[in-house]
Nucleic acid binder design. Structure first.
Lengths: 155, 155
DNA sequence: ATAGTTTCCGAGACGGAGTATCATTATGGT
DNA sequence: ACCATAATGATACTCCGTCTCGGAAACTAT
């Protein structure tokens, strides 16, 4: 089942099909010196098939023929290479999602579990200033926004 | 009501007297229907004695004569009653700190581990707007700021 | 191709962090 | 003092992720 579930947004450059996504990511990993392996492809493929932020264990269940350690390793590699981002829910549950590289935050729906990207919200500068006012040099931050998405608000 | 003078004689910390802090928190808990117990006082006292955000396990080590489960329960109670706040480090380590009640964020120094409160930074409104622009109704958020504190920057 | 080198895999052991269980004890209202 | 019940503490357990290590697969050089 190759289902590319489009996300909320409007202007979207045509998302390659799942197979292409896998090839693309594998290519990038190869450039970094990592090998092109079957289990790795399966992990990437499963990640790409998710329409919602997912947990590592969910991924393991979705890949019964791939070792648990391999799934975790693959996931970690994808996070380190900025192909997948980590999402922290309100209850501190850790989830993952395929992401466009680059710094961004997430709007997370507590009802349906959907996530939407939030970019260029300008909060960074504000925080850096506020931190500086306290003699603090900001070097990073963690930000997740919780609430309800359009569909769930309407119900 | 009996006000037990806590802790065996010894060194005092330069902050408001630990005993008073303990009595105050215990009083609030009693108002909520919780009992005034010795282990509970020990936990609160140990929490109040910390000068930096601490982990639950650190607290357990600091209280060898209090059961681990009791320390965790006490900590959870303090968080639920808004006496103690949770702090999430960059590596996702969970720490705690005695806090003034009310919503606020933390500036966390990655060098010395110190934390400073950040209030009224205005980021909330900005986020709410940005979320609304995506048809998202914001109901909460998680925000931690990482960097270096004054002293550590100066070194 | 073939051999050699190195990464990667998978099964399971392991470890940290927090919760559940449950018999026992302590607390506080009467 | 009595007693219902909240709290404690030892420990078992779950969950999630990493580590270990022998064997397999993938790239490299020949």
């Amino acid at each position: 089942m190759v289902v590319t579930t489009p996300k909320h947004s409007g202007h979207e450059h045509p998302r390659p099909r799942s197979a292409a996504v896998v090839d693309d990511i594998i290519a990038q990993l190869c450039d970094l010196g990592y090998r092109d392996t079957e289990p790795r492809r399966l992990v990437i493929s499963a990640v790409a098939a998710q329409s919602r932020p997912f947990t590592a264990e969910e991924l393991c269940s979705a890949l019964p023929c791939v070792g648990r350690a391999t799934v975790y390793r693959g996931l970690r590699l994808l996070v380190e290479t900025d192909q997948v981002c980590r999402i922290l829910l309100e209850d501190h549950e850790l989830r993952y999602q395929l992401s466009q590289p680059g710094h961004h935050h997430h709007l997370l729906c507590g009802v349906c579990g959907a996530s939407a990207d939030l970019e260029g919200c300008g909060a960074e500068d504000l925080l850096r200033e506020a931190a500086a006012a306290a003699g603090f040099r900001m070097k990073g931050h963690l930000l997740e926004v919780y609430g309800e998405c359009v569909e769930c608000v309407e119900d």
